[in-house]
């Protein structure tokens, strides 16, 4: 990588790392350590392909896609070793105060995300956190639009089941 390309990459990575990390935290349902690993892995992959990535119209979107695919690849490889968690002790000290988000709701929400199959979680994060269209989500996940819709409907139904009451007053709060 030339010095110029290296600088461009460094600038891009510095600008996007925070957002990628937040996305990864949602994808992993609050596993912040795994989230760091996934972001590092995604940044590494982007580094390798930077000469091409930097020429595409939307490197930020590309980075998000790489992150999501990295997450799914990780899940495919390691799913049988992952253990169910009933608490997120590491979240206690990350502080939810500065955004005014309700910490207990946050934990409930992450817990609900954790109960979704990995692909459904990826769909939900791309659609409702990244605000991507069904079509864009389908592209990112190598799925058909119909499959994205199916997963989305299924995931939302499940989330509603898990969160309905907790979220009932949310928009008004």
């Amino acid at each position: 990588m030339s010095q110029r390309a290296g600088e461009d990459y460094a600038e891009f990575a510095a600008a996007r790392a925070g957002h990628l990390y937040r996305s990864a935290c949602l994808l992993t349902a609050g596993d912040t350590h795994l989230a760091e690993d996934l972001v590092q892995e995604a940044l590494g992959r982007i580094y390798v392909r930077w000469s091409r990535v930097s020429r595409v119209g939307n490197p930020a979107g590309y980075a998000q896609t790489v992150l999501t695919r990295t997450f799914l690849a990780h899940r495919r490889r390691f799913s049988s070793r992952e253990r169910a968690r009933d608490s997120f002790p590491e979240l206690a000290d990350t502080g939810a105060d500065h955004t005014g988000a309700d910490p207990s709701l946050r934990l409930t929400l992450l817990d609900a995300l954790a109960r979704l199959p990995a692909k459904d979680r990826a769909v939900v994060v791309l659609r409702y956190w990244e605000d991507r269209s069904v079509h864009e989500t389908a592209d990112a996940l190598n799925m058909s639009s119909a499959a994205v819709r199916t997963r989305c409907v299924r995931a939302l139904a499940r989330l509603r089941e898990l969160l309905g009451e907790d979220l009932a007053e949310y928009a008004r709060s």
Partner: peptide, 12 residues
Amino acid sequence: FSAALHDAGDTF
């Protein structure tokens, strides 16, 4: 849900 997800994500 979308609003709650953004709030939760922003805390990390």
